[in-house]
């Protein structure tokens, strides 16, 4: 069989697209090591001064804490609700369950700004504006589609008769979930969790609307920093976020590789 040999032009084009995708994000990395007092590439030498400022600033460290805490809690909520919903739809597998699954993906389709506006109105009524709980709940909802999609994909490869077999051999519904269904869809659940986490970690618009005066997650503090002045600390934060996200994504990729083998 003839192996597919990409021509030089195709290869060059592929690299061009890749650079287009990746380079703008990585441009901030050298900027974070600048020796100047404004956003620019290092002029005379590379400096760690802005990294020092970032790590010693109570505001930035607080923001990291807030972002992490919100991302972890909202991910747990998304994963539990999304996984159970996907399993329920899979078991019913009727026209209704298809519609429910469609509904679960809606938060992804609705423009975030529309959603944020709606949730702001609701939160004013519920007195949730400016609270950690409020942001966690909002992120849990917007993170739901990632979990429902990845878990549903895992379930579509699962033989429905395994559930019957487990029940037939004496397992209760809970035991069937614990011993048979969840272990077999675990890679999908973890992938969904990672996507939901990243989603909350770098979400800005909802936080701008409902964060009030008290909540400054990492993306929001960056946004305010860019608006106020062009402090190079922004580049440091961006670099840190990119590295962290890459780490999480690598975990996801290695999971997928394990699933494939």
């Amino acid at each position: 069989m003839k192996t597919l040999q990409p021509s030089g032009i195709v290869l060059a084009f592929a690299w061009l697209v890749l650079s287009f995708l990746v380079l703008p994000a990585f441009a901030v990395i050298p900027v974070s090591f600048t020796d100047t007092r404004y956003l620019s590439l290092p002029e005379e030498h590379w400096s760690l001064q802005h990294w020092r400022t970032f790590l010693s600033s109570q505001d930035w460290v607080d923001s990291i804490g807030q972002s992490l805490w919100i991302a972890v809690v909202s991910t747990v909520l998304s994963v539990v609700a999304g996984t159970l919903c996907a399993i329920g739809c899979w078991r019913l597998s009727s026209g209704l369950s298809e519609k429910i699954r469609g509904l679960m993906i809606l938060p992804m389709a609705v423009p975030t700004i529309v959603y944020a506006l709606g949730i702001y109105r609701l939160y004013v009524e519920l007195d949730l504006v400016g609270t950690m709980l409020g942001v966690m709940l909002a992120h849990a909802v917007t993170g739901l589609p990632f979990v429902v999609l990845t878990v549903s994909a895992s379930l579509s490869n699962l033989d429905p008769r395994l559930e019957q077999a487990a029940r037939g051999l004496g397992a209760s519904v809970r035991q069937t979930l614990r011993y048979v269904i969840v272990p077999n869809i675990l890679p999908g659940v973890l992938s969904g969790a990672i996507f939901a986490f990243i989603h909350s970690w770098d979400e800005l618009i909802v936080v701008l609307f409902i964060g009030g005066r008290a909540l400054f997650t990492l993306p929001r503090r960056m946004w305010d920093g860019i608006n106020d002045n062009l402090d190079p600390v922004i580049a440091v934060v961006a670099t840190a976020m990119i590295l962290f996200t890459l780490l999480v994504l690598t975990a996801e990729l290695s999971l997928r590789a394990r699933r494939a083998s």
Binding site: D159, R161, L162, Q164, A165, A166, R167, G168, L169, G170, A171, S172, Q175, Y179, V180, P183, N184
Partner: peptide, 30 residues
């Protein structure tokens, strides 16, 4: 699950996440 009946399915329906031993142990484990 309360009927205590053993079942053998078409296409076996063995649990892919368990070893042969764990599969056979399943009715006892639960």
């Amino acid at each position: 699950e309360k009927r205590g009946i053993g079942m053998v399915f078409q296409n076996y329906a063995l649990f892919p996440n368990m070893t042969v031993g764990e599969n056979i142990a399943f009715p006892l484990t639960v």
